[in-house]
């Protein structure tokens, strides 16, 4: 396992399309639920423990070699909003392209063949982690961190929030992000023996509703 490979995969500049998505922050800003650093932290914490945990578990399970088709179906079942499913598959397709160019592997090629229009992003993330020589723990940390880093950087652009404050939010959430990643890996290990239903199904209804509202806007900065 290479620590540097983990840094490459987790880098916000990894060219996998994330910059165009706000993780629900754009809609939450418009609705007045994110107005500054404190409410950004609340928003991110909620996201981390719900969709963040689910994403981290999917990524960890994929990294352990659990069947990607079954994981993709499980991701669909845990994503009621059609707009969020579209966004997750778009990001999955973009990550697949970047990962295949970065860490060429037969498993990634096979995934691309089975999902030409993209699988859910966390599933691709787990397979990409395998291709990079990383493990389930790494994949889970990446997914958990991404679940909060995306909204934080989007909020810097949306609110002209002080970037130092936004980064401090991420630092304060780091211990919780570690715990979420640990729980995700435990769940993924249970999936290997006990089947796909061992995956957590934490949900954030407001994120799902917000995503549908956001998708209907005529004017927006972010794709989701």
């Amino acid at each position: 396992m290479s620590r540097a490979a983990l840094l490459v995969l987790a880098d916000g500049r990894f060219p996998a399309g994330g910059h165009a998505h706000s993780g629900g922050a754009e809609q939450a800003v418009k609705a007045g639920r994110i107005t500054g650093a404190a409410s950004l932290e609340d928003f991110c914490r909620g996201r981390l423990h719900t969709t963040g945990l689910v994403a981290a578990s999917l990524a960890a399970a994929a990294a352990l070699g659990v069947d990607a088709v079954a994981l993709d179906e499980a991701a669909d079942a845990r994503t009621p909003s059609p707009a969020l499913r579209v966004a997750a598959r778009k990001l999955g397709r973009q990550l697949m392209r970047a990962a295949r160019a970065t860490w060429p592997s037969a498993e990634l090629d096979d995934l691309a063949r089975r999902f030409p229009k993209g699988a859910h992003q966390p599933v691709v993330l787990g397979v990409a982690a395998r291709a990079a020589g990383l493990g389930a723990v790494d994949a889970a940390h990446c997914a958990a961190y991404e679940s909060v880093s995306g909204p934080a950087s989007a909020t810097v652009r949306l609110l002209s929030l002080d970037p130092f404050e936004a980064t401090a939010v991420l630092a304060r959430l780091a211990p919780e992000s570690d715990r979420v990643a640990d729980r995700a890996v435990e769940a993924a290990r249970r999936v290997v023996d006990g089947g796909i239903d061992e995956l957590p199904a934490g949900s954030a209804p407001l994120l799902e509703i917000g995503a549908e509202v956001h998708a209907a806007w005529a004017v927006r900065l972010f794709a989701s």
């Binding site: 500049r13 060219p15 996998a16 910059h19 998505h21 778009k90 970047a98 900065l221 972010f222």
Partner: peptide, 17 residues
């Protein structure tokens, strides 16, 4: 293509979309 407030990123740094 939607570019997330950064048009140059979408044509140069992260061209996946």
């Amino acid at each position: 293509v939607e570019t997330g407030a950064c048009p140059h990123t979408a044509i140069r740094d992260d061209i996946s979309a």
